[in-house]
Design a protein around this nucleic acid. Sequence first.
DNA 1: TTTCATTTGTTCGTATGTATT
DNA 2: CAATACATACGAACAAATGAA
Lengths: 82, 82
Amino acid sequence: MSTVPPFNPDPDAPVYLYEQVADHLQARIEAGEIGPRLPGERALMDEYGVAHGTIRKATDLLRERGRVVTLPGKGTFVRKGE
Amino acid sequence: MSTVPPFNPDPDAPVYLYEQVADHLQARIEAGEIGPRLPGERALMDEYGVAHGTIRKATDLLRERGRVVTLPGKGTFVRKGE
DNA sequence: TTTCATTTGTTCGTATGTATT
DNA sequence: CAATACATACGAACAAATGAA
């Protein structure tokens, strides 16, 4: 059970910030660190130190990847299964 | 560690200006003078004293050569590796 | 019922950067 | 060369859905 290293965004990396956030969240999910419900968008904003839109794009990406499902007004949840 | 000589475009050379700019940028990249993120297009316009389109063609060339990767809205980045 | 807190969803304005005309 | 469009990212505010008191 190794923990996921802290989020360390690289502004000079050829990768969008929201994608870096999504990758980090996915790593935490697969490490079992978060779930079945993800922290709220505002909590994630604080955790990652990024703006609302960036968190939304990150979770959009995870949803496109099929890792999470989100219910408006309820939350974003880790999708079970492989 | 020698620095790259200043940009000195030769109007009489049988080489397009944007190619001369690209070659100079590539030399600076390989000399480690710039990167991992290239200056913005407007900054490069000022540095080289050329028009926007010339800078764009130069970076297009670098991209075709596989030396840089560009992400719209984020920037143009030196590609790591050989 | 209404009220309240929480959470997702949307929009506006500003800044920076690339892309297009 | 200039102007415009598009995309990321930030900050702020507000709306809408949910659930519990």
